[in-house]
Design a protein around this nucleic acid. Sequence first.
DNA 1: ATTAATTTTTAGACAAGACTAAAAATTAAT
DNA 2: ATTAATTTTTAGTCTTGTCTAAAAATTAAT
Lengths: 217, 217
Amino acid sequence: MLTQSEENYLKAIFSLSEHYSEIVSTNLLAEKMKTKPSSVTDMLRKLADKSLVSYLKYQGCELTEKGKESALQIIRKHRLWEVFLVEKLNFGWEEVHDIAEQLEHIKSSKLTDRLDEFLHFPKVDPHGDPIPDCNGKYSNDQKNKKLSSLSLNDEVMITGVEDGSAEFFQFLKHCKIELGTKVKIVAKYNFDQSVLIFINEQEIVLSELVSQKIYVQ
Amino acid sequence: MLTQSEENYLKAIFSLSEHYSEIVSTNLLAEKMKTKPSSVTDMLRKLADKSLVSYLKYQGCELTEKGKESALQIIRKHRLWEVFLVEKLNFGWEEVHDIAEQLEHIKSSKLTDRLDEFLHFPKVDPHGDPIPDCNGKYSNDQKNKKLSSLSLNDEVMITGVEDGSAEFFQFLKHCKIELGTKVKIVAKYNFDQSVLIFINEQEIVLSELVSQKIYVQ
DNA sequence: ATTAATTTTTAGACAAGACTAAAAATTAAT
DNA sequence: ATTAATTTTTAGTCTTGTCTAAAAATTAAT
Ligand SMILES: [Mn+2]
Ligand SMILES: [Mn+2]
Ligand SMILES: [Mn+2]
Ligand SMILES: [Mn+2]
């Protein structure tokens, strides 16, 4: 049985190895977990003892198959609960992450599967992130093209946003950026990689940081 | 902010002071919590520091108003989740307690209140236990008369059962005892306080222990 | 009123998970 | 190839919640 802390580490390693390289360094993981590198070292030992990560001193860590499966089950629960909160309890997509961070640790695969069924087996969560099925399988269609990668005059639809900080959602809300909103690239500014987009009948400038956190298709 | 452990202690003290006396002894609490009296002493100090219980060495403990409120909020969550699991996810009443033990610790009063609304503000949980409202108020109609207190030829309806052990629910399932089932007292045996009841077109003997865990009206 | 039994608390230890400060290993720069 | 900077680990400490064994207080029995 995994502790909540162990589960959070697994999720963090999974996310970092997706975004960066397969092998995750101690410092990067410490930053992600908002903790100290020394604490990470301690935890990596424990996870390695349970064969959830492969870990060699000074070489960083990597999830084992078992570790990847565990991580995906937690991610599955997180995203299903987010769907539940938005679809059934009328929460906004900006409110659900923190509550899902708690709910993802509830231990009952029967509950997870029944919830999945109750929600009619959703394929994506409120932020466009794919939801693994009970075997951990998922397809990533809506989150492979970033708004920042588009060319002039491209017309696309928003299919996902990075899930996380409250300030970011505040900004999205202000611009009325939602899943399904249509966007056209009006101009690209090379000096700071910002883009001018046409959205909701008006033009808005998005910084590079923001445009990298919005996914389109 | 309360830890899960602190919340579990509060719930246990609340339950014991309802069933026995207002003031709860260290040993009784230790038994209920399946832990050692010395651990209870430690915890009572912490809860007293947070003004959740009043505690005097060797005199046992008692919930303060604040402690009672906290306990009721946890019980509220526990029971709402039980309703959710039975009504929405089609769990049996015997399966939900353990999952609710986890869900009751999720911290978000907004979630609790939305869930309450989603379930149409239920007054009782699947075992007939009253659900406190967002202010902690509840009325106890269906759990004040025990089956064991009935007289010969009394005809009643089952309105509640003690929520807890799996073996007990196994037995209830076998006898097809559910909320709403009608029961008549056919005989009472004084030598062991067992009762003979007519239920679901047949006669069954219930031990004193069982008949004290079934509530009627 | 003593003695005996029971209950409760203290003292000391342990595991999990975190932290700081210092040491060691690795990587980068000269 | 050394030296310098960075990364990572070790050593030691802290808190929470638990435990055992021993001491103290309370309650019950003679
Ligand atoms: Mn999320
Ligand atoms: Mn999400
Ligand atoms: Mn229950
Ligand atoms: Mn119940």
